[in-house]
Design a protein around this nucleic acid. Structure first.
Length: 578
RNA sequence: GGUCCCGUGGUGCAGUUUGGAGUGCACGCCGGCCUGUCAAGCCGGAGGUCGCGGGUUCAAAUCCCGUCGGGACCGCCA
């Protein structure tokens, strides 16, 4: 049916008789007979010169047979890859007529996403999604090649698994053969890949679909793809090297360049300097520690556990009172009591509502501590340390985060995460990762502590961050029963509970578990950044909206009573409004 | 669970602040003219429940309340 792709015809092809197939991208008619038809397929467009009358309209599907020829002098189109040639003496065969598209396919107008999703099959024809999906395919392919070159074996793990109470909310699937019982769709292949290690697979990988029933965001869908990997007889640095190699192979395959080596930063450093565990190091505006400067201060707002600030360079002039009020409002929404701000005057003196509560020494020290120059705006938050970090971390992004397409690719490995993220009401620690994460070897002794002391225990867990996006995380897993017992004891998990929740994994470890470590990273996010998209929906063929619906297929839908009966399910009426 | 933004012919917008006839722009669509265009050009035309419901008013796209849909974010995502 077809001899060539539209977008691949070149001067070399002049004189050849070709058949091309595709969609009518655009037509330009001149009188009753002559028309220029731009025929489009996934490779691009080629101009076809049609001399007979044809009813060819936008998005008609056609097969055109003709002779490739040079365009007449002065009519070549240098903006087009096929611009030196055209297909002449065309015979046209309409393969499908088409209604006018529900929205323009070219990228000059940003069409409402709901409309694009309802007609996703039309949207997919556009240059943007064609480019993004082929980039995605190239990333997947490069990752597979890289993992295989590093002697990882691809293993497929089940989609219907046992529900576990930890972590994200599960999607559940009712069992027909076991009424009243449910499978869960996997949040990740975590348990299975560790079982693979016990099973001697040695190095496992999978480009795995993972599902979590949590609220959607620009960087989160219900279902997403991860490069999931685990290696036996390997530690943190081995795994970081494997993953860096796979990610860099994907970047190189799609951009042609190998990125700069990742920097490594401890979790504590990331939190103190960037206010987040996923630092975007493309820009400055780092958090400055000011707690010591305000020690013994008279100013009540600064008599707190922690004071930190951001120097918004030049913000004294560029940000007016309304803008600063808006920032204050946001800081309150993020959990701060307020935002203290000072404009730096021409002589370096500070101007702000709080100066009257501060000593001369404090006023004199604040500017130099923050590297202030005339015209800067100093933004301070005082509160519990965790609140200060969180709020200033968000404020920093608000003030300076560049668009995804700017600033290059800055990879960061964040290491030495705490083993426990916080202490609950009963004084028990809450796992930061999962309870099989190996503590830092220097901190194993601290596991016998209690309460707040446990928060000092570091773990051998590590995240890969790219331009402020958390690409993924991994850890060294506990394979020694004594350490596992100590962690469970710290978490307040008794033997019976451990058996009930994680029994089959613990059983497996009794039969010869190699030391192992692993990682998983989100392919959607990596592809989005490489594609210059702020939103992973732009790199997913059929994504869901923020409310978890698919405007194309109308999922989720009700199911029939007969179907429910078969599953032994009864649907309650929705809770009454009000 | 919460905060904020958006909803006007097929598409993108203006109009909403300060209520006064569905007013306007660009693209697309339909018809006509046009033999070297390429975002073709020129002429003409069609196309509207201003998301939906209620309220205020002589009068609502515009003000108020509610609701639905979309988006960004907080919570949530071990």
């Amino acid at each position: 049916m077809r001899t060539d792709y539209c977008g691949e015809l070149r001067a070399d092809d002049i004189g050849r008789e070709v058949s091309v197939c595709g969609w009518v991208d655009r037509r330009r008619e001149h009188g009753e007979h002559l028309a220029f038809i731009d025929l489009r397929d996934r490779t691009g467009v080629v101009q076809c010169v049609v001399d007979e009358r044809h009813d060819l309209r936008s998005e008609y599907v056609a097969r055109v047979t003709g002779t490739v020829r040079a365009r007449p002098d002065g009519t070549a189109n240098p903006t087009l890859a096929t611009g030196e040639v055209e297909v002449g003496d065309c015979q046209v065969e309409v393969l499908s007529a088409a209604e006018p598209p529900p929205f323009p396919l070219h990228s000059r107008t940003e069409v409402d996403e709901n409309v694009r999703l309802r007609y996703r099959y039309v949207d997919l024809r556009g240059e943007r999604l064609q480019r993004n999906l082929s980039l995605r395919a190239a990333v997947n392919s490069a990752i597979r090649r890289s993992m295989e070159a590093q002697r990882f074996t691809e293993v497929e793990t089940p989609m219907l698994v046992a529900s576990t109470p930890e972590g994200a909310r599960d999607f559940v699937v009712p069992s027909r053969l076991h009424p009243g019982r449910f499978y869960a769709l996997p949040q990740s292949p975590q348990i299975f890949k560790q079982l693979c290690m016990v099973g001697g697979i040695d190095r496992y990988y999978q480009i795995a679909r993972c599902l979590r029933d949590e609220d959607l965001r620009a960087d989160r869908q219900f279902e997403f793809m991860q490069l999931d990997a685990e290696a036996s007889f390997a530690g943190q640095h081995d795994v970081m090297a494997f993953i860096t190699e796979a990610v860099f192979a994907a970047v190189e395959a799609t951009t042609g360049n190998r990125p700069a080596d990742p920097i490594t930063m401890s979790w504590t450093d990331a939190m103190e300097r960037y206010g987040t565990d996923k630092p975007d190091v493309r820009f400055g505006l780092e958090l400055v520690e000011l707690t010591g400067l305000f020690e013994g201060t008279e100013a009540k707002v600064f008599q707190v556990e922690c004071v930190k600030g951001i120097n918004c360079k030049g913000g004294g002039g560029s940000l007016g009172r309304n803008a600063v009020d808006e920032l204050t409002r946001k800081c309150r929404q993020w959990g701060a009591k307020g935002l203290a701000w000072f404009r730096v005057g021409g002589n370096g003196a500070l101007d702000g509502a709080l100066t009257k509560f501060m000593s001369d020494a404090e006023q004199a020290a604040l500017g130099p501590a923050m590297g202030a120059e005339p015209g800067d705006l100093l933004l301070l938050v005082a509160d519990r340390r965790q609140t200060v970090r969180d709020v200033l971390g968000l404020l920093r992004l608000e003030l300076g985060r560049p668009p995804v397409t700017e600033g290059g690719l800055h990879f960061v490995w964040v290491t030495d995460f705490p083993l426990f993220e916080s202490i609950d009401d009963q004084g028990r620690p809450i796992s930061a990762h999962h309870p099989f994460t190996m503590p830092h070897p220097e901190d194993v002794g601290l596991l016998d502590g209690a309460g707040e002391e446990l928060l000092a225990v570091r773990s051998q867990a590590y995240d890969m961050v790219l331009n402020g996006w958390e690409l993924g995380s991994g850890s060294v897993r506990i394979h020694r029963p004594d350490i596992q017992r100590a962690v469970f004891r710290a978490l307040g998990i008794g033997d019976d509970e451990a058996e009930e929740r994680f029994g089959f994994l613990l059983d497996a470890f009794r039969y010869g578990a190699p030391p192992h470590a692993g990682f998983a990273f989100g392919i959607d996010r990596l592809v989005a950044i490489l594609a210059g998209e702020e939103n992973i929906r732009e790199v997913i063929a059929f994504p869901k909206t923020q409310s978890g619906a698919d405007p194309l297929s109308n999922s989720p839908t009700p199911i029939s009573d007969r179907h429910l009966d078969e599953l032994g399910l009864h649907v309650l009426p929705p809770p009454a409004a009000g």
